[in-house]
Design a protein around this nucleic acid. Sequence first.
DNA 1: TCGCCAAGACTTTTT
DNA 2: GTCTTGGCGA
Length: 742
Amino acid sequence: MSDPLLDDLNPQQLKAVTAGDGQILVLAGPGSGKTRVLTRRLVYLLDRKGVPAYDIIAVTFTNKAAREMEERVVTLMHGGTDGLWLGTFHAMCARLLRREAKALNLSPNFVIFDSDDQEALVKRAIRELNIDEKMHRPAGVHASISNAKNELYAPADMPVTSYRDEVVKRVYIRYQELLLANNAVDFDDLLFYATQLLRDNPSIRESYARRFRYVLVDEFQDTNLAQYELLKQLSSVHKNIFVVGDEDQSIYRWRGADYRNVLRFEKDFPDCQKILLEQNYRSTQTVLDAARGVIDENRNRTPKHLFTTRGEGSKIITYTAPDDIDEADFVVKEIQKKVNSNTAAPGDFAVMYRTNAQSRVIEEAFMRSAIPYQLIGAQRFYGRREVKDMIAFLRLVQNPDDEISLLRVLGVPPRGIGDKTIANIQAAAFKKDISAGEVLLDLGQKSDASPFWALIGRSAAIVADFGSLLEDWIALRDQVSLVTLFDRIIQDTGFEAYINDGTDEGADRWENVQELRRLAFDYQEKGITPFLESLALVSDQDTIRDAELNGTGRPARGTVTLLTLHAAKGLEFKQVFIIGLDEGLLPHSRSRDDPEEMAEERRLFYVGITRAKDQLYLLRAERRNSFGNWEYSEPSRFLDAIDPALVKHHGRASRSPREAQARDMIWDSYNPSPSRRVTLEPAPAAEQKYKETMRVRSENWGEGIVIESKMDTDGEEIVSVQFESVGIKRLIASLAKLEILK
DNA sequence: TCGCCAAGACTTTTT
DNA sequence: GTCTTGGCGA
């Protein structure tokens, strides 16, 4: 009998999907069908085990992942999914906090500050405390505060071991007060408050932990301490927790993520079931071999034996460009060539780099060509001034206490409110211990009868006008649709005439506002709060446009995707270019002195390599332009870990003979040292009968695929075979009577 | 109050 | 080399 839910799963996947209750740890290599397993598990619980959707919570890191899961679940399911909690950590926490706001010091209409707002607020705290901004950069202090929150330290509890800590702590305390006064939370607060809420309120914890009989988690290796605690609390009653992750793809250490949570999980739940997914459905053997060479140099990991049935595939193409401009040209020309000859479409390609700064040169090269491309990240859309302004208006309507937004839009468009007036408003607010927004609203209501009128001074009338506009909008908030409110704000402020000033840039800016308006359309029903929340929590990945369908129903040719290695996680492309394989860039110079960070750089490269399905390109440039002068670099050390036999070096483009010689040594005649090569070198070939990817049949277990074979010290050949029936078995070849199938 | 200009920073990755 | 920030003049 056929079963569409389970039939196409391999033995390991099946084991994971149909595992019983308890704690399940799935370690899933790249391309091993991680999302598929998670999705099927969810449907398995709902559809086969009859678990009500209401009893399940499933958490991901990006909205994109959550959306994909939801779409697939809906297609696979016959019943409904009402009541299911499915979303990102941050979104789930926001939901929890809005429901339980009264148990915290927040009102349910709190806003979520984005990173710019957070930094602005830190800056303000620093200034209030008369701390030297040059010595203690707001961005740096904010990063330290963020770390403290991820480690679950409340402001008062933050440990101090240095003078800098002391400064950070003082700022942290003030920053947190300011957030509360703004009725706002930052990204870390969402996790921090949620964890705190559950920890300190047994009855609330009980009710959620009782409700969520099943907890499912994606990208578990990227959880930080706060997230780990949260998961433990949510699953504290039923203890049915199913996590999927891969230590080798942990690349967010700097954000508090700790892949050792995988080890912690095994320690906290000694009875947990551990399942390895090792069959890769994405890449060619060549790509996997390169990836393995790179990652095998990291220690402290669960060894995995990734294998594929996709065959060897084409060699990795490497190219050393004389400079970064030529590096970019090579990428564009190569893509152009394949697109023109119809062997590939733009949507097949991705270009990946370590730092956002590298995207510029690449982008310029694409602009000179006719190839469509999309650049992911770096706040391309939401970071635009006109977009942020419109969002700030909406945020102010949602929450008049949001002073950051208030200050942002008070002079947009310019209406005669300057520093002096702003200071007066703030002073008036301080005097009455209310927010600046409330001062405005009072002025809007009572005009010159307001007690604040005299305090504001000359521009009181202008401020009162703005206050009454704000009051109108707030009144409209719950009566008209989101888009109507949006249009009304534009109309009342003359926003269009202000930004669309007749120049090309003006038209561009107006187009961005229209784009935001289109996004608002999707939230007509849900309203302003979910809209703003979704805007605050978009990740770069969420902005990726997949190749849309065109009118004919066939996939459009798509666009080349330009993105950082970080943003590439979880994605796949037929052809991948990784550029900037230079010492100092990948690995980044900031990681040079810390082995842990170096290991993370390596994982980052590993993530990049394993995005490729068919063809991988590795590029570097001998010199690149930074701040207006040339900087030279050596090839990345990570390249040494890739077996030269997997690589085809493309042309030579070196300018100076000396450099060319150095490069040739690395690429053409480089002979890796034995210690480095040990993991890649096949065992002595003499008696070895079986090789990776061979199909074999055993009397006991039927057909399978050889995933590894090596000679042990006794001269016995040890073969690991992935059997269709029972999964992976390690066998002694001479005893196992394996038949090789062609 | 606002726009212009010069000085300085900027480059790690982001929910 | 370019973008942001802060200071100054109109």
